[in-house]
């Protein structure tokens, strides 16, 4: 870390490892970090209330976005149209596109 960056962090009251959390929290939550890096972040977050709160906030955000996954199914009309087009292509399993009754 450069000297100017370090003094800026000190000015903000942040330790060097709080800065690492800011930079790498998403990598950590996405499992895109080395095991050693994950352990380093985990240990710091466990000891730092500010970073715990930030982690909670980001985890909540990711849960909310994941919750947008609507359990939508392809409409029957689409299945019918696709079945006919696959049949036209000579596909032998065209009737399997339709949902089983």
């Amino acid at each position: 870390m450069s000297a100017p960056a370090r003094s800026q962090l000190e000015e903000l009251g942040l330790s060097a490892t709080c800065a690492e959390v800011l930079h790498h929290l998403w990598d950590y939550l996405d499992d895109q970090i080395t095991p050693a890096g994950a352990e380093r972040l985990r240990a710091h977050i466990a000891a730092c209330k500010q970073c715990q709160q930030y982690e909670d906030y980001q985890e909540c955000f990711l849960r909310a976005v994941a919750g947008l996954r609507q359990e939508l199914g392809a409409p029957e009309s689409l299945r019918e149209r696709l079945a006919e087009r696959l049949k036209g292509q000579g596909c032998g399993c065209w009737n399997k596109v339709r949902r089983e009754p």
Binding site: Q70, L72, A74, L78, R81, L82, R85, L86
Partner: peptide, 30 residues
């Protein structure tokens, strides 16, 4: 074929329009 619902959902997310998603899904499987 088991992924038809997933592909439809993804297509709908991209197109944000049911009729466009319908076209995209058909073209995808063809």
């Amino acid at each position: 074929l088991p992924w038809l619902d997933d592909v439809y959902r993804f297509a709908l997310s991209l197109t944000r329009e049911e009729s466009d998603a319908d076209d995209v899904v058909q073209e995808t499987f063809l």
